[in-house]
Design a protein around this nucleic acid. Structure first.
Lengths: 280, 280
DNA sequence: TTTCTGCTGGAACATTTATTCCATTCCTGC
DNA sequence: GCAGGAATGGAATAAATGTTCCAGCAGAAA
């Protein structure tokens, strides 16, 4: 029996594949080399195109594309295309992909360092993404609004509770009067019972939105308080009643969302509000 | 002949489409609204997926996807998908533009965005620094030790409380038995009173080390429990009694330390412990 | 030059895909 | 409570896609 192109398994992330193509290109048959050059020069077209369209652009037959993919250990063109798509998606590598990349680099890492690496990467991506997508005006509005409030109510439960509890700590240190709704002993509604039109609330919630958070934000709103929403979508149930909306979409690894960006937002709100008040 | 859903022609660029979806969402039928939310929250999946895969992720029928596209003036799903793809293409192409835009923003930036930028940068620095300095073996030891424990006690107050409260949430989700020492009503010592030699504790503390955390960690140690310390120095008071020491040095901005790395460590410990237990 | 190995092109094929259509369900307005 | 209309789910369909296969070809070795 013959060993196909590479007995080894196919690269699962773009960088490894790229390195592999560069390395083997010289030894590739003419048409396959042609595909190699085209693919590395036009990765976007490979990601979006069909086998037929890519083949035409690269001046080869669709079957050559399949052969090319197979020679690198993929099952077919579609399989290879996935890697090109993942580059654009620049999503966080999954656990398994990380593992195979490590193997190809000849490195051995413990499983827990792979997990850590995934979370660190998710955090980095979240931050980079937020830098691009954030709305400075919304942030300014939020700070203005909070700086003008009498007492700031912090609403965030379950996954979002670390965020509000941090804000409570930071604001406390900075002398900003706040009340952390922790819903201890089921007293969430009672804790928020004294909120008034002179106050403001920060509501933090992510999919799946905790119903208590939504209810508390709504009741604060109906009492006339201004609302700053920190959430992951413009369609979040806490987005519509909000006076200022800060949209944070965190990358996730293995289903656990990074909190890096949300934490930075929490810190910013706390510090900027204190600074704004100090000005006056 | 009838005018389809919207007489207007379909948006050709993503931002226009996005605005259009947000505007019309409230008036959309239930399933179409569901698609609207999914599409704006997961634009990458819409760009790359097939009608069937997107439909499944959004929990609708493929036909609903087509109807959705048509109601916005597109001919079908594929037509709408092109807009989502162009967004990804453009993003890659306009990378240079982004740089110059950043500079422009830098000049006219509001104070609060400067603060935010500072915190984001601190987070990035922390992560990059930790990547270099971290000790994989210590992490492995910590995971081993926690995976072998009966109940995991989470000790972290004040600034570190967001970390332990997150761990409690994550471990709860993952089915890892844990007790969060929150010291509500001054009952910290009592909460930790039942800790035994078969248990383990995660102690999280940073300068200036909260005395209660140090005391609780010490008492857990004297009861025979294994200790994992997450702290900022080998000279930390919780470092010496620890069986595994994870040293995290976060960058700070305006005196407020980033929590990005510590959060990633918290997530890692939670997930890796659950995974380790799942193996056996 | 001849022979053989392996590459290439193109057509055939089996899937998969997006879309359409219709019966059923779910609302809304009276 | 009822009627009418809109919205929905799901099967049917037609188009397109990726892959396989095989004959022919080019280049290397003898």
């Amino acid at each position: 029996m013959t060993i196909d192109g590479e007995g080894a398994e196919a690269p699962r992330d773009f960088e490894t594949l790229r390195a592999s193509i560069v390395e083997r290109r010289a030894a590739l048959p003419k048409r396959l080399a042609q595909v190699a050059i085209y693919a590395l020069d036009n990765p976007d077209d490979v990601a979006f195109g069909t086998a037929a369209s890519v083949a035409q652009s690269a001046s080869v037959q669709p079957s050559t594309l399949v052969r090319f993919a197979q020679s690198f250990g993929f099952q077919g063109f579609s399989d290879l295309q996935d890697v090109f798509r993942s580059r654009l998606r620049d999503r966080v590598l999954t656990y398994g992909e990380r593992l195979s990349r490590m193997r190809q680099h000849g490195l051995t890492a413990s499983r827990s360092s792979l997990v850590l690496d995934g979370f660190l990467e998710a955090a980095e991506q979240s931050i980079a993404g937020f830098r691009k997508s954030m709305d400075p005006q919304a942030l300014d509005r939020a700070v203005d609004l909070l700086a003008g409030a009498d007492t700031i109510y912090l609403i965030g439960l379950r996954r979002s509770f670390p965020i509000t509890s941090y804000m409570s700590y930071a604001m406390g240190k900075l002398g900003v009067r706040n009340i952390l709704i922790d819903a201890v002993a089921g007293m969430g509604a009672e804790q928020a019972g004294f909120i008034s039109a002179r106050d403001a609330a920060v509501a933090v919630s992510f999919t799946p939105y905790a119903s208590e958070t939504v209810a508390l934000a709504g009741s604060a709103r109906s009492r006339g308080a201004r609302i700053v929403a920190v959430t992951d979508s413009v369609f979040s149930p806490i987005a519509s009643p909000a006076d200022a909306l800060i949209e944070v979409s965190e990358a996730n690894f293995e289903g656990f969302r990074s909190m890096a960006t949300t934490m930075a937002v929490a810190m910013t709100l706390s510090v900027a509000v204190a600074a704004r008040r100090g000005e006056n």
